[in-house]
Nucleic acid binder design. Structure first.
Lengths: 304, 304
DNA sequence: TATACCCATAGACATGATCTATATCTCTCC
DNA sequence: GGAGAGATATAGATCATGTCTATGGGTATA
């Protein structure tokens, strides 16, 4: 660092000016007085200007020294603030956590963790960005979110995936289809009823469509919605049979406003995964959040 | 400097963040890439936080790194400004020069130098503070002015004195006393005429009073004024004979509106001196000004 | 006059900043 | 797919320079 002025000298200058004494500055900086004296001299030689007038009681800024001090004081304040801020970030007293996911996963999976997290680290600002799986991945790659919560499977070499929560999709109906209670339907039978599905670009929709297609059956939903709440609501009102994760309708199933319509083929369980950028280091907040989720469920991290 | 974070590291961090490349930062700082890499690592370890995500194309600030950068960038700007300002101060492109003196010395002695100085160094702000000799000395000791211009002799161990300009006091009269032209008066004869003197606390006044007293003559001025201009004006209008430095009335003497009234005892020449605080280093502007004056007259610096 | 406290200076010393050499990784281009 | 360019990381040697001790001079204070 031969060029330019050593910024350490400004630290010394600051304390010398602030305390009005090289000896006091030395104490503040855990140095000896000659070191401080030497540091100030270096600054003066570099600038070609006398910064202090030396008296028997200490030192006093000259006109030029006072000019320098005006700038350096500000600069020093900022650095102090920066150091405080960084300490706060490390201790998770400050910072932000930006999560991407679907509304339904937020509501039924992430929410309790968010509450815990916020209670434990109240200084950290939370940002929730909802979107479809491809959108979430886009946000991640743009650096707009720290982590995404989406349905598996995802294969993307740029992404780090941790599978956590397990979802079991199923068909549910409301009172209007009461007569189906206790029955186990085949896929063909199911198709005789109006089916309500989540929108085309969702992973759940793709999974069930594939299942029907593999048996040569065309799955044509009567109604297609963009919100899981609506999916549930429509089923409750009897507009059809909804395909939805059982975990999202636990309350409705308990209350009896919905009941499951079992089918004769096993529906594969869907895993939820937490996505992060593999090349971008996790922020303190993000890793704390992931750890929190890890405690609440068994994580299967992908080996890749 | 074992405690705290080495501020040099911030300089490295700044350039690494700004260029987005450790290699580029190294070039900017005339360092090698491993040095920069090491510096960043130190910062990260001190903060317990990752500041950059390393990619194949360089580095990119993490969330935490971006927070730090926001502060450090500001701080860096201030330091750059400070360094520019100090360079400007050294080159006398900026700064200020505060001079104390009497109005008459400003007008008749300092003014041409001020003009030269301002022409040569237009960036330097000029402050003129007028006052009596004791006031000027007070200003100096308070640090309110850089230098004072007063009549000698001054003896004060805290002050550095340089004698420069020489003044020759004399008595002058206007047309009303035309009949005195060509005469040489004794002090007693002079006392028959109304005398106009500068105010009591001036050095010129003290000198002439002593001269009369040493001969047992009481010097009672008819009129006492606080401004040399007024002293001259009153003499021109014939209200009396004024005691004034010949150098202050050269124009009036040439024009003939005033003429000198010689006396039969030699009036000692008065020297003008430039005062500075001996314990306070001169500002660049002040020493440049003193040098300028030095070229225009032969300075006799006191040995002390 | 003596004491105490300040800053300046000189020279010895050791820390730690910096360098060289090398490894590893990731894009890109052929 | 393999080679090359260019990025960062790591290890160890080196030496610059920051820091210390010792000392001196100066100025207030008692």
């Amino acid at each position: 660092m031969s060029m330019g002025i050593n910024y350490e000298l400004y630290k010394v200058f600051y304390w010398a000016a602030k305390t009005g004494s090289l000896t006091q500055a030395a104490k503040k900086l855990y140095l000896t007085q000659p070191s401080v004296s030497h540091a100030i001299k270096q600054l003066e030689e570099r600038f070609g200007v006398t910064l202090f007038s030396r008296t028997a009681r200490g030192v006093e800024l000259t006109q030029e020294g006072a000019v320098l001090y005006a700038y350096i004081e500000q600069s020093q304040m900022l650095i102090s603030l920066a150091e405080e801020k960084m300490a706060a970030l490390r201790n998770l007293e400050s910072g932000e956590l930006r999560i991407g996911g679907s509304d339904s996963l937020f509501k039924h999976y992430i929410l309790p963790y968010l509450e815990q997290f916020h209670e434990r680290y109240p200084g950290i600002k939370l940002h929730l960005n909802h979107g479809t799986t491809p959108e979430i991945i886009g946000f991640l790659k743009e650096g707009r979110i720290d982590l995404g919560v989406v349905r598996m499977p995802i294969v993307d070499p740029q992404l780090q995936v941790m599978e956590t929560y397990q979802l079991q999709d199923c068909f549910v109906a409301g009172a209007r289809y009461e007569h189906l209670k206790g029955e186990v339907l085949s896929l063909e039978q199911l198709l005789r009823y109006p089916i309500i599905l989540f929108s085309r670009n969702s992973r759940a929709r793709m999974t069930i469509t594939e299942l029907f297609q593999s048996r040569g059956l065309p799955l044509r939903p009567e109604i297609e919605v963009g919100s899981v709440d609506l999916l549930i609501e429509l089923a409750k009102r009897g507009l059809g049979i909804s395909y939805v994760a059982k975990e999202f309708v636990t309350k409705e199933l308990e209350e009896g406003v919905l009941f499951e319509v079992p089918i004769d083929v096993p529906l594969p369980p869907a895993r939820v995964g937490i996505l992060t950028m593999s090349s971008v280091p996790l922020s303190g907040a993000a890793s704390a959040f992931i750890e929190l989720i890890g405690k609440g469920s068994d994580i299967k991290e992908d080996a890749r």
